[in-house]
Structure formats: structure tokens, C-alpha cells
Amino acid sequence: MTLTPRLDILGAALADSSRARMLCELMDGRAYTNKELASAAGVTPQTATAHLRRLEEAGLIRATRSGRCLYHSIAGPDVAEALETLSALAPSDHLYRVQQRKGARLKMLEARSCYDHLAGRLGVAIAQALLELGDLARDGAQYRVVPSERWAKLGVTLTGRAPLARPCLDWTERLPHVAGPVGREVLSHALSANWLRRVRGERGLEVTPAGAVALRQILGIRWEGGQCYQN
């Protein structure tokens, strides 16, 4: 018997469009009920139950009971980053065809959560700004965090074991954004400080006026109409 990774199990779990839609819904880092995921995937709750069981058996999601409800979530950050990387390899022409329609604007392309950190155009822009400002440095395939006063302004506490930050290939931008504890704290602080707010019914995040000011003052990023410009 040859010992090889059971990629066939993962492949079979992912090889269904309804399960893929459920995973995409869960990639915003929150937990959802069977009924909510059934609605997102456009299937009945009974069908959703079978799909969720398949995803759980493959180790991609976990279920947690709270009171009378059973909540489903991504199994962990490693799974989320693997799914984001796979998404970057998948065809994405459909996203850009939609975006080319007159007046179309996809919030999830501009800013979204990738499990517990920031992704999309804004996530990539922040990663690039931190590299250019010297707060992050490339260290092989990882990031090295350089202590500075800027981190506190972003809500980041530089404690814990390295690596505090690591690149995560962005699905839509095809460039890395920041994952790891640093990425998690930046997103958490941005939401609590009302720099970002969740878009109802979507995975996307919206930059608030306060967030636009903070981006400009702290990172030199101008955010205008869903686009990033470096000052």
C-alpha cells in the first residue's frame, strides 16, 4: 500500500456546486445554521444536511451546538487558507463579466473577510502598504513583522510566537493579503472601530467614512469608490 494524502476525499467533498456555495458562505468566518446555508446554496434543509455531513466528514467544517441550534463553521484557519488558495486557482471569468456590466459593483471584490482576516482589493492594498512602509518584510515564503508604532494604531499587539503574519494568496486579486494573528487583529479592530461594516446578505465588507480616514492617516491609502490609491 502506498501512503499518499487522501486528496480524493477532499476532491469528492468539493465536487458539488451546492457544497461549494456553502463553503463560500462560511468563508466570512461566521457560523451558520443548516437553514441559513440551505438558503445560500438554494437547496432544501434536508439536502443541506446531507451536504454538510459530507463536508464535516472530509474535515472541512465543524458543527457546534448552542442551545437548540446547530451551527456550522470552517474547521480552522488552515482550511480557510487552503480554500482561498484553491479559489485563486479556479476560473473567475464570471466575476469579471458581472463587474463589466454597467453600474455593477461587487463589494466582495473590494473588501471581504477571508475567515478571520481581510481580503479583496483592500486586503491586498494593506499588505502592500505595510511592506512599502517597512512594517512587514518578506522572509522567504513568510512575512517578518517589524515593530513600529503603526501596529498599535491598527489594533495589533505584537506578542506570541513567530510567524505573526503570513501571506495568503487572494482569490480575486491573485496577490497576497495578510493572514495569521496580525491579519486577524487588523480585521477585528477595523470592525470594532467601525472602519468596516458587513454588507447584509453578502460576504463583502464596506469601508466607512471613518475607515477611509484611518486608511489615509495610518497607511497612506486613499479609498475612493471601491478603489485603492497610494498617497
Rank of each mutant, 00 (worst) to 15 (best):
L106H: 10
H94P: 02
G220M: 01
R97F: 03
G140K: 04
M1C: 03
G103D: 05
R166D: 02
L55V: 12
R222D: 10
I126S: 00
R184P: 09
R138K: 08
S113P: 12
S39F: 00
D78I: 15
R97E: 04
L95D: 08
E224C: 06
A40G: 02
A127N: 06
G160R: 11
W171T: 13
G76P: 15
D16N: 14
P5V: 11
L164E: 11
G183M: 07
L23K: 13
L130H: 07
H189M: 04
L55D: 00
T208N: 08
C69N: 04
I61C: 06
V43M: 04
S73I: 13
R105M: 00
G180P: 15
G134S: 06
L169G: 00
E36M: 02
G225I: 04
E173C: 03
R121I: 08
G76E: 07
A152M: 03
G103H: 03
L196E: 09
A111T: 06
P91C: 02
T33E: 00
L55R: 01
P147F: 01
R97M: 00
T44A: 00
A162M: 11
A210C: 05
Y96Q: 02
D135G: 05
G67S: 01
R197P: 15
V43C: 06
P147Y: 05
V146N: 01
V186P: 04
V146E: 01
A162P: 14
G183Q: 09
K153R: 13
A119W: 07
L130I: 10
P147I: 09
C114K: 07
V124G: 07
T85E: 15
K35F: 08
D8W: 15
P163C: 15
E81H: 15
A38L: 01
Q46F: 01
R54T: 12
Y32L: 05
G226T: 07
